[in-house]
Design a protein around this nucleic acid. Structure first.
Length: 114
RNA sequence: UGAGUAAGCCAGAUGAUCGCGUGUGCAGUUAUGCAUACGAGGAAAGUCCGGGCUCCAUAGGGCAGGGUGCCGGGUAAUACCCGGUGGAGGCGACUCUAAGGCUAGUGCAACAGAGAUAUACCGCCAUUGAGAGGUGGGAAGUGAGAGAUGGGAAGUGGGACAGAUUUAUAGUCUCACCUCCCACAUCUCACAUCUCACUUCUCAAUCGGUAAGGGUGGAAAGGCGAGGUAAGAGCUCACCAGCGGUUAGGUAACUAACCGGCUAUGUAAACCCCACUUGGAGCAAGACCAAAUAGAGAGACAGCCAAGGCUUUGCUUUGGCAGGAACGGCCCCUUCCGUCUCCGGGUAAGGUCGCUUGAGCUUGUUGGUGACAGCAAGCCUAGAUAGAUGAUCAUCCAAUACAGAACCCGGCUUAUAGACUUACUCAUGAU
């Protein structure tokens, strides 16, 4: 089990947003950019359009849980930001998980795809 | 049993697997690993009040401005809470109440209405004038009628007288009665005229009276009844409301009784008055670490007075004035300071602290109607910083609402599925 490295600073987020590729699903958008390291750094962002603070916390936890389940099988060396889209407040865990899985497949981040 | 009132309580539970944050212990050079304990709310929300804490001066004075506003108490403090008073609502349990002062002054009061803080439109009344009618009196007139009285005439009867004379008749005078005529005081009736008084109606006038009635309005100088008055009116009186005073009760708000002059529109979440109260900014506060309350640098300017020093046409030090800053509406006070411009580091992209032991929680006890306070014992109960509580499965359950700590407390307000407890009220039924 690898430790989950997090994106923390505002400029790191901005760099990923401005310079990275992005993949869109119904509830989740993933921005991704390579970093020069042997581990992945992940950030999660939920805007106020999604809902009140309880809803935002819930969605962030669900996204984190879904990513965590597949972190072991992911390629390394990227900075990734997952953003919840407006309307995702009504989604449950299985919906979020399906979105994350499909995004990871499209981005060819899973080791098994190689 | 139903309907309600008030207060309080809970906010899915248990287990398994994977995962997160912090503290502690152990291991390790560090990164970290392992074990273990703890890990969102009744509102964590809104940020509406009040405080602690930090910096600005140890937070000072006055004015302005703001806040509060029945009384007493509680508290660190409050706009909160408790107890009471007045008012409003409810059959009741009980609930609501921004509830100081319009009898300090000023302002405002649309529309309607004659008039809005004093007004006379209608109405009522008085006076004056004009007109019409009625009643009564008076004056003179015309007509009719009655008629005291006076005069005259005739008739009847009585008496007296004189004369004639046979007697009688006749005569004269007088009295009574009756009839008629004339004059006329007077009275009655009718008619028309004039005049006076009273009264009714109409019209007009009065810088007239009135505020009972009408109408307008949220409000028209108390309500209602009786007396009173030209008509009316607190003009007088009884009762009621209101105001003021006295006495009694109460810490007080206020209540009760008595007395008094008689009457006062509403609005202060209008200005204002009164009483009390109030400095500002906020944990992105603030402190520390590394250049670290930023200043190493460049340029320009540096007022007046006094004293001193030196390298004495000058430079410099100290003090005062002036000026500036802290200071944020103004003035004062206090403290500090050569001034201005340019450049530049830093300015939510570093780290540590502040950061959770606190007006703390639980239990007991004492005081108090209560809010609360005192005492004793026990307990430590999130502290993150892209920001920790999630996922899956199983069982129970009728079902899970509103909702996520960010310096910390005390309140208020707002949101909230459902479940429960206690006390009380009303209605119905049974006993």
């Amino acid at each position: 089990m690898t430790t989950l490295h997090k994106l923390k600073k505002n400029y790191e987020f901005k760099k990923v947003y401005n310079e990275g590729k992005y993949y869109v699903e119904k509830f989740v958008v993933m921005y991704i950019i390579p970093n020069d390291s042997n581990f992945n750094r992940v950030g999660f962002s939920v805007s106020k359009k999604v809902g009140k603070s309880v809803i935002r916390n819930k969605i962030k936890r669900l996204m984190k849980e879904a990513y965590r389940k597949f972190a072991d099988t992911a390629k390394l060396g990227y900075d990734i930001v997952f953003t919840a889209r407006a309307g995702s407040g009504s989604a449950d865990y299985s919906m979020i998980e399906n979105n994350i899985i499909s995004i990871l497949k499209r981005a060819k981040l899973k080791k098994s795809e190689e």
